[in-house]
């Protein structure tokens, strides 16, 4: 029995696009302070899952409770308040390419109506840039950065609101293995430094092995199995073996 507090509860989540059933009665629980990795093949609906959790997509049915709030029923302003406490790292980073790194980092602070003074803003920008190790890039444009650096800046932008939960959409996809490892290390550091809970979506087994406390397998729209890496790796189920071999 789990005694820890749950921060995200997904129950019987269904989502289809026309005839394409992507999520079919999907269940998932994320506990406070844990790193949970959701593994699934490309196109299995991982991005759809976390976009439903953050309220970017409307589920067809099911309950999504985040920090005690039922996401599909929230009004626009309630959703904004919730989103200030939930960070989202996009698969494609989604840095605003018309703004400098500094402006990118300041954007969520200013837009969430957080009335902070310029001095505090500068201090926060400096702090998050330092925690991703890129202090010198503050006045560069996103286009001038490498893929790994962009991923770090995107993470810094997510961190600046000090979220309680961070949702990572394939943080290592498209990066070389060494940079990927660096990002994995960073995710672990962030979790320790800011005491966040993390839901990581991926198909990267290395990431699942090194950064997860628990793994959930998303297969055919369902949560097929959950467990630690060791437990799942020891399974003889052919659907699971396909991932681990």
């Amino acid at each position: 029995m789990e005694t820890r507090e749950a921060v995200i509860i997904v129950e019987n989540l269904c989502k289809a696009f026309g005839d394409n059933v992507v999520l079919d009665h999907f269940n998932l629980t994320l506990y406070k302070g844990e790193n949970l990795v959701v593994l699934g093949k490309s196109g299995s609906g991982k991005s759809v899952l976390i976009k439903c959790i953050i309220g970017l997509l409307r589920p067809d049915s099911g309950r999504i409770e985040v920090l005690g709030e039922n996401v599909p029923e929230l009004s626009y302003s309630q959703l904004d308040q919730l989103r200030a406490r939930v960070g989202f790292l996009f698969q494609s980073n989604a840095l605003y390419d018309s703004m400098t790194v500094r402006e990118n980092l300041e954007f969520p602070l200013r837009r969430h109506w957080l009335k902070v003074e310029q001095k505090e803003v500068d201090a926060l920008v400096h702090e998050v840039l330092e925690s991703v190790g890129l202090e010198h890039t503050a006045d560069m444009m996103p286009a001038e950065l490498s893929g790994g650096m962009r991923k770090r800046i995107a993470l810094a932008r997510t961190l600046i609101l000090k979220p309680a939960i961070i949702l990572y959409d394939e943080p290592t996809t498209g990066l070389d293995p060494i940079t990927g490892m660096e990002i994995i290390e960073l995710i672990k550091q962030v979790q320790q430094r800011y005491q966040t809970s993390a839901l990581v979506i991926s198909h990267d087994m290395k990431l699942a092995q090194t950064a997860s406390e628990r793994i959930a397998m998303l297969i055919e729209g369902k949560c097929y199995a959950t467990g630690t890496y060791r437990e799942l790796a020891a399974s003889t189920d052919p659907n699971l073996r396909a991932f681990f071999d």
Partner: peptide, 13 residues
């Protein structure tokens, strides 16, 4: 296509 519009939405905009 680079999800910047979604990013704005989750940034209170």
């Amino acid at each position: 296509v680079t999800e910047q519009i979604d990013a704005m939405e989750v940034s209170g905009t």
